[in-house]
Design a protein around this nucleic acid. Sequence first.
DNA 1: TCCTTTTTGCAAATAATTTGCAACTACTAA
DNA 2: TTAGTAGTTGCAAATTATTTGCAAAAAGGA
Lengths: 139, 139
Amino acid sequence: MDSLRQFTHRLRRRDRRITGPRQAILETLRAQEHPLAIRQIHDALHEPCDLATVYRAMHMLEDMGMVKRFDFGDGTARFELIAEGDDGHHHHLICRNCATVVEIEECFSKKLEQRIANQNGFTALTHKLEFFGLCPTCQ
Amino acid sequence: MDSLRQFTHRLRRRDRRITGPRQAILETLRAQEHPLAIRQIHDALHEPCDLATVYRAMHMLEDMGMVKRFDFGDGTARFELIAEGDDGHHHHLICRNCATVVEIEECFSKKLEQRIANQNGFTALTHKLEFFGLCPTCQ
DNA sequence: TCCTTTTTGCAAATAATTTGCAACTACTAA
DNA sequence: TTAGTAGTTGCAAATTATTTGCAAAAAGGA
């Protein structure tokens, strides 16, 4: 319930509206622990809406920092709701064969990133990292 | 010159042919130190060929392990020639503003990857990792 | 040089995503 | 509660990257 409340609050703050499709999309994302593709979100909605609406909603949620976009390298964006009090920073381990996804909380040390930033004079570093392999079933 | 010779050898071995477009593409890749998008490769060819031919050639070069595909998350595949004696494993630091690319040789320790594999029962792990930030000019 | 197999160019097909626009609806001010 | 305004939606068409079918052209071996 809280994320809906939080959502409402953030929307109002930006003069954005709380609509049926947006609430439904949030519900759908909340029910999943893994990243969902737009198509999957769309198909899972009980009260269906246009695909374009889902695309637009995801952009908005992303801009508002409520959702994180992941890229598994297959040309399809996937999204996860960012849990409360979480920064959403985590990675995935994806089976190359069956596409099973496991969430990975571990990451390399921030020192590495800091060093890379310093050595190249870059600031505000972020990174995208995903692991691929063969899951127990597919080996 | 060597990579062309190597290429010829690998092609013959697989009953593939050495054609103008393929040689031209290799030349183009060799002249660049950064990953190139298909469109860029296509536009850089002196002896032009069809875009579809470039797409097909890149698949072939990738299958032959002569080229590595990178994904900067913008929906466009980029390719780099794999240098001789190199495994092609490296990453990039990309400016979020001007898209400048810096090659990064550093990577996190293999132990991390090994641990992730073990903890989840996965094998044959690989990863995709790219860094993003603001370059000195764009800050 | 001839023959077989691989390649290429071209155009059309896919797929994910974006966009223009008119109809519609959430929110706010009264 | 209601009207007005600004944000949203559905629909269809446009974009972009990439793939594919197919007939004509080219490569490499005999």
